[in-house]
Amino acid sequence: MTVRELCLTEDFKPLALPDGEREIKGVYIGDLLSWVMGRASADDAWITIMSNQNIVAVASLADTACIIVAEDVKLESEITDLALSKGVNILSSDKSIYETAVILSKLL
């Protein structure tokens, strides 16, 4: 499923979608950024509650398909602007991390 298709489902809202045709091939969950870079795979949807600017660089370098900010965590507009300029997709979910993962597990 592509990131854009995921945004069409009711549980996910796009915050930045510069590369919507990106295919999601797996899921990784984590907030420790080095842990994510060490363990996430390219093309994963990355679920986190981390909301600082560094998540954009991490997603870009680890080549994840998108960031999903769960638990209804809000992002500053400068972060979504940065994501747009770096080609990084960011979605938001108001569900818990666990529920977000369960939904993804059914969709993928």
Binding site: D31, L32, L33, S34, W35, M37, G38, M50, N52, I55
Partner: peptide, 15 residues
């Protein structure tokens, strides 16, 4: 608190 300092930096560089 920014998500760094997990003690994975150098190990990741080696990995």
């Amino acid at each position: 608190s920014l998500g760094f300092g997990a003690g994975m930096g150098l190990p990741n560089m080696k990995r």
